[in-house]
Design a protein around this nucleic acid. Sequence first.
DNA 1: TATTACTTTCAATAATATTTGAAAGTTTAA
DNA 2: TTAAACTTTCAAATATTATTGAAAGTAATA
Lengths: 168, 168
Amino acid sequence: MNFVEGKQELLSTWGTLATQWGINRTMAQIHALLLISPEPLSAEEIMEELSISRGNANMNIRELMSWDLVKKILKPGERKEFFEAEKDMYEIFKRVARERKRREIEPLLKVFDQLSKIEDENSDPKVVQFQKTVKNMSDFVTNANKTIDTVIKADENWFFSSIFKLMK
Amino acid sequence: MNFVEGKQELLSTWGTLATQWGINRTMAQIHALLLISPEPLSAEEIMEELSISRGNANMNIRELMSWDLVKKILKPGERKEFFEAEKDMYEIFKRVARERKRREIEPLLKVFDQLSKIEDENSDPKVVQFQKTVKNMSDFVTNANKTIDTVIKADENWFFSSIFKLMK
DNA sequence: TATTACTTTCAATAATATTTGAAAGTTTAA
DNA sequence: TTAAACTTTCAAATATTATTGAAAGTAATA
């Protein structure tokens, strides 16, 4: 496998992985492309490399910026915009965790909160198990949420090495 | 909100969340339905509750079993099969982690391994940054993989409380 | 063995998510 | 101003994924 083949393999694998995690394939591929690029790329270059349309490129680049994974670079004297990815993997991980927390976990906790308020005098086992399940889900997600907060604040070596030490 | 409305809300929210994580909506809803059910349910009952076809129910129940989240229960004297979900949230989390690791992380590490073997004498910055990125991704995923192993072996209270203590 | 009571399969269909591309919008500079 | 060089939008088209349901398969029982 040479560089060009390897690049295709990486972009394709990364894109496939992304879809398994509910992330748009093109978004992941643009991200990977910027990760392996030593220089910021323009929309044109991204469109070219991935054979995608201008609209698609624009939309996914902006989505990446909203996740704080990519930033716009303006080169002096150039009118065009260039894009550059944050390259530190742990930083990427933290930013994704922060966004998913905000977009998904927090709304979910609100739903649990509402569901926990359901009062049914009724001691029907169905109601009892429902309430038990909501409580368990809610407690678990609350803990997961706190764990994410911990990770977001921690630094990489400390976090990973601490986790490993737990099992020694 | 009463019990019936709350149940609908939970099934719907859980299903939506699942799609954001690359998991089939129906699969997640069947899982949630079994989680709130005090008794094992038959395929018929699942079809009825979620208004889905027999084929769809069958397919997703089997998928849940392949994730080891649901098991088949045979009641003595009954020909029909019933299904029951593992209800412990941390156990569910570990089983999902174990499966995603096996299905996604391990194949991914193989790809990284191949990509790391690309030798291009060439000191083109594009090649250099490619190799650097593959190395970073690979190291990060390797660490994440080890962390998952740690979590899979740990028990809940110990794991969560240890994590929190890290930040004190 | 034949019938009944189920479960499984899968091609066709439907639902959902992504992508395109042309038109509209914006900014810069002559 | 106007034109050029870009970026953004979004309705329509396409691609992907999920669902249906009827037929085929299987196993228990009469």
